[in-house]
Design a protein around this nucleic acid. Structure first.
Length: 769
RNA sequence: GGGUAUAUAGCUCAGCGGUAGAGCAUUACGUUGACGUCGUAAGGGUCAUAGGUUCGAUCCCUAUUAUACCCACCA
């Protein structure tokens, strides 16, 4: 038996599951059910993520409500509190999972802090460290002043905001020289300035290079340096260089070997400045320094400014760049390996593979340490002498260092949550058939899993990657608690019944794009489910059991089932869920209910119920709960094949008669072909009252004289259209020069058809006269 | 600033070199065998704009516009 493995993106233990989870899970559940029915042994790898910063943030906030803080509690007690929270959160998630009703065994699941995963993480770290890819460095890092931890570049969000920009005068050390004016949005950082920078092309550059200028207030002299990183057209073309608190400045600083002066501490407060400002927060200091400028008659100008401001993703406070010691993972080798192996992975949608590649090409070292308490502590031990030992356990570290293990102190930092997630694909040794996840975590998670798996396990973890869109509200806005437009999947399921939301989402996945979810759509799915239930009621309770032979109709629906089944399966295999859903909808509602069941009313068939069950089997992954209730545990298996049928003729004749009926009060017609069926479909009596006959589909249809005029009208329009088409086609064929033969042949055939039809109509017209 | 995706009927979206499609909504008619209604039918489109390639473009190319997202060090 073949295996089918899929990996659930583990939800965070920070809170409840939302419609995004429901959608993502529904896609996976759909595939699982489909593959199961196909005879595969399926495995859905489930789990939860400890979500380091996010969880710690939530728990700290809860503590703050009670007037407690993590510092008071200490690391051990605090982690106990987090464990309590975890249990609470798990219960909540459990309830939701139960309500989601997916085909999963939630009791069998992993957790990123499980002992075996901790081991996996430690081993990975040690290997990477010993390979020389992990290094501790004093560097400026993105800093979250609320959670007091470093964060990665990916956890930074940017917003365009209106604020103020200040133009500040830096006087020349040599009083004869003219002052330089610097535009900055951060006047509070002048104390960390170590240079002023100009672009080498700047006309002032040659004259000023090496000259010294004074930092306002403290009158410290700093030199002018030249670097093309300073752009002449930005600001006033003069950059104040604060290498300890700005990444561009840091780069310039490194190039010119400038001193790093740190003035912002881990709490986001100033130190090492002047006594009026030390201890103030950035925002406070910004206001205060302007006051001080005024008091000291420092020349400055204030202007309105619109620019990008950075915030931390998790706690939402302004981002600071500060100087700290952090652990960095050099991912360049891994990225190279990932690039070499990515072609064998199929991406849905394909264009994301390029996004993936571009990211890999431009990848930068990853800051993997976090100064929080909840997470995987780094397997790094320090000896009394300050030697760094990296081993998976304290015992091993002690052995290696040849010291008593009580002498070793473990690094207090924990790993970025995504470091442990990066190993999530290695919960199984086998290749995962498909990972279905959101595109927002392509870099955070998917890319890193691929890199880690290739480097550490020499294995490409995935065969296919499917990125689902975001579920948005009916106005195409992202759902958020603050906007109040959040749709709760469980509430929707309660309102519209089981499977309605699931079907709606599957039917609207439209090429991995975001889904605009309108409740109206869910209502339509509900109606579809009702239709199916009613069909069942009709077939089992109301259908006339007085069966007659009904080969034509049966053969037709059987052929339809055969064709649709194939097409639906092809679409599912290509992950075209929306097309598959539409096909199933069409087969069930249009073909089976509207034509077949309507036909049964005249001609009940013993096979009707079997056909119904066959269609349900096809649709089972779309509406598993509904269909499970209807499908009997054991039902007679019937073979579905393509069969000869002339039912299409019935449809054509029916549609023709309906058209006539629409425009007249026709009461009778006469035909000697499937008359009962047509009578039933058209609700026109089959009774010979006239000798006027028209020929359609090689069948004679007799219609009363008085309705002939209406027939004329009905066909006149068709006639016009046909003539127009013939004209166009003839012209096309005549003017065709460099058109391939097969195309011309096709046109000719079509033209022949048109002419035949026109001939039919002409005959008809003659007859009517 | 760079990149990617999207632009087709009132709405949600298919199609993607050779007759513009579906579902919903609208309108009309009809529902004495199932219908948390259902059925039948009709109307509705310069396929974002402008060029180009081609015998032929909604489809390919180029530019423009709009929207969304991603990346980047902008004072």
């Amino acid at each position: 038996m073949k295996n089918f493995i899929t990996l659930l993106p583990p939800p965070n233990i920070t809170g409840s599951l939302h419609i995004g989870h429901y959608f993502n899970w529904a896609l996976q559940d759909f595939l699982i059910q489909y593959k199961k029915a196909k005879g595969y042994k399926t495995e859905w790898i489930l789990g939860l993520d400890h979500a380091g910063i996010a969880t710690q943030y939530v728990v700290e906030r809860k503590l703050a409500e009670k007037g407690e803080s993590r510092k008071e509690l200490g690391r051990e007690k605090f982690n106990e509190k987090i464990q309590e929270w975890k249990i609470e959160a798990e219960e909540l998630i459990q309830k939701q999972v139960d309500n989601f009703k997916f085909d999963m065994n939630w009791n069998v699941r992993h957790f990123t802090m499980d002992e075996d995963h901790q081991k996996r993480v430690r081993e990975a770290f040690v290997k990477l460290y010993k390979d020389g890819l992990i290094e501790k460095k004093l560097k400026i890092t993105n800093w979250d002043t609320k959670c007091k931890t470093a964060i990665s570049d990916l956890e930074v969000i940017e917003k365009v905001e209106k604020s103020k920009i200040y133009i500040i005068e830096y006087k020349a050390e040599n009083k004869e020289e003219e002052s330089l004016y610097v535009a900055t949005t951060r006047p509070e950082t002048i104390f960390a300035d170590v240079a002023l920078c100009l672009n080498p092309e700047d006309p002032r550059a040659k004259k000023l290079e090496g000259k010294k200028f004074l930092i306002p207030l403290i009158n410290k002299a700093i030199p002018v340096i030249l670097d093309e990183l300073c752009q002449a057209d930005k600001g006033l073309g003069v950059l104040k260089v604060t290498p300890a608190h700005d990444s561009l400045d840091n780069e310039i600083g490194e190039k010119h070997k400038l001193e790093l002066i740190s003035i912002i501490n881990e709490e986001g407060k100033l130190y090492n400045t002047i006594k009026e400002l030390d201890g103030l927060t950035i925002e406070e200091a910004k206001k205060e320094i302007i006051k001080i400028f005024k008091e000291n008659q420092i020349n400055y100008e204030e202007k309105e400014w619109e620019g990008i401001k950075k915030y931390t993703e998790k706690s939402g406070v302004p981002l600071e760049m500060i100087l700290t010691e952090q652990w960095f993972l050099d991912v360049s080798t891994m990225a190279k390996q990932a690039l070499e192996n990515i072609e064998e992975v199929k991406f849905y949608p394909e264009y994301l593979k390029n996004t993936f590649k571009n990211w890999m090409i431009n990848i930068k070292p990853w800051c993997i340490s976090r100064q929080i308490w909840w997470g995987h502590q780094l397997p790094i031990w320090y000896t009394k002498e300050g030697e760094i030992i990296c081993e998976t356990t304290k015992e091993e570290a002690a052995n290696k260092a040849k010291v008593d293990k009580e002498e070793l102190k473990q690094e207090t930092d924990v790993l970025d949550t995504w470091f442990s997630s990066a190993l999530w694909a290695n919960l199984t040794e086998e290749k995962i058939d498909v990972l279905i996840t959101g595109k927002d975590i392509l870099f955070f998670w998917v890319a890193r899993m691929i890199m880690f798996s290739l480097y550490l396990y020499n294995k490409n973890p995935f065969k296919k990657l499917y990125f689902n869109g975001i579920v948005r509200d009916k106005n195409n806005e992202k759902m958020s608690k603050t906007k109040g437009n959040v749709i709760n999947p469980i509430e929707l399921n309660e309102k519209y019944g089981e499977d309605a939301l699931r079907f709606t989402l599957l039917k609207n996945t439209a090429g991995n794009k975001d889904i605009k979810l309108n409740e109206k759509e869910v209502e339509l799915s509900r109606n579809f489910i009702t239709k199916i239930r009613n069909a069942e009621t009709f077939l089992t309770k109301y259908m006339n059991k007085n069966y007659k032979e009904n080969e034509n109709l049966d053969s037709w629906i059987e052929t339809k089932i055969f064709e649709y089944k194939q097409e639906i399966e092809t679409n599912i295999e290509e992950y075209e869920f929306q097309k598959a859903a539409e096909l199933f909808y069409d087969l069930m509602w249009n073909h089976y209910c509207n034509w077949y069941i309507e036909g049964l009313k005249e001609n009940p068939s013993t096979k009707a119920i079997n056909y119904f069950y066959e269609i349900l089997k096809i649709g089972q992954p779309f509406l598993p709960l509904t269909i499970e209730k209807i499908l009997p545990k054991e039902n007679k298996k019937i073979t579905i094949t393509k069969k000869e049928t002339n039912f299409e003729k019935v449809i054509k004749i029916t549609k023709f008669l309906r058209k006539i009926k629409k425009h007249s009060d026709i009461k009778t017609f006469y035909i000697e072909f499937e008359e009962k069926l047509i009578e039933n479909y058209t609700k026109i009596k089959n009774e010979k009252t006239s000798n006027f006959a028209i020929i359609l589909e090689q069948e004679k249809i007799f219609i009363e004289k008085e309705h002939i005029e209406k027939v004329k009208e009905a066909i006149e329009k068709e006639n016009k259209e046909l003539e127009k088409e013939r004209l166009e086609l003839t012209k096309k064929i005549e003017t065709a020069k460099s058109v391939p033969n097969n195309i011309v042949e096709e046109w000719k055939n079509r033209n022949k058809n048109t002419e035949e039809k026109l001939e039919e109509i002409n005959q008809l017209k003659k007859l009517i006269k």
